[in-house]
Structure formats: C-alpha cells, structure tokens
Amino acid sequence: MNAYRVTEHRKRWIILALITIAIACLLSPWASSHPDGLERVAEDHGFLHQETAVNELAAIPDYEVAGIPWAAVSIGLAGAIGIMIMAAVLFGLTRSLTRSGGDRNEQRTDGLEGIDRI
C-alpha cells in the first residue's frame, strides 16, 4: 500500500533478529507437542496411519539433534541450525536474483574482450 513501507530503522531489524534467535533457541523446546490441525483431522478421520516418510536422509528429523540427551538442548540446537540455514539460503537466493542480470552483462563483456584479443 502506498501509505506504508517497511521500516528503515536498523534497531527494529536488530530486535527482530534477537527475537528470532530467542524463539529458535530458547522458546522452541517449550512448544506444544499436541497434534496440529491437520494431524488432528487425520487422527479423527482414521488416516493418520497412512503417514510415511520418503526422506530417510533427513539430518535432523522432528527437530531434535540426535545424540543429545537433553531435549531442550537438542531442540534448541535444531532451531539455531534452522535459522542459520534459512538466512543463508534466502540470502543466497535473493542476492542471486538481484545480481543475475548484471552477471550476464559482465560475462558478455568478458566474452567480447576475449574475441577482441583474438
């Protein structure tokens, strides 16, 4: 909407980052373990047993890092790893989207220079 835009106050983004870290590392072990809406529906209507997992190679299944006896640490670590992966993936993806136009031009210039030299 033309009346609003995302804030440019650096402080607000830093606080969002701190909240994100706190949620992922400290709050995550205390999340409710009740089935979520879809799991509830699947249970009530008798198709929860159909659930399988194709991806047996998942590094951190069910948000618990294996080999750590304390659930709070195991889940908090899973959260910490997750936010780092997310930030890295999205930083890489969006940066490549902003740059891909420029890169192509640079490559084309390089190519032309090569031809000139020949």
Binding site: I19, I23, P35, R40
Partner: peptide, 27 residues
C-alpha cells in the same frame, strides 16, 4: 532488501517451530 528478506525468512522458520495449544488437545 536482501538481508531483510533473509532475516524475515529465519523468523518464519523459528515461529513455525512454536506450536501453541488450542482446544481439544490440538495445537
């Protein structure tokens, strides 16, 4: 916007980990 989008994405991931209880032993 690139670093802001990355940060908001990390926030979404973190917030999705937090199941909150609603009625009927469901979250």
């Amino acid at each position: 916007r690139v670093p802001l989008i990355a940060l908001v994405g990390a926030f979404v991931f973190a917030a999705q980990m937090i199941n909150f209880p609603i009625a009927g032993a469901t979250s």
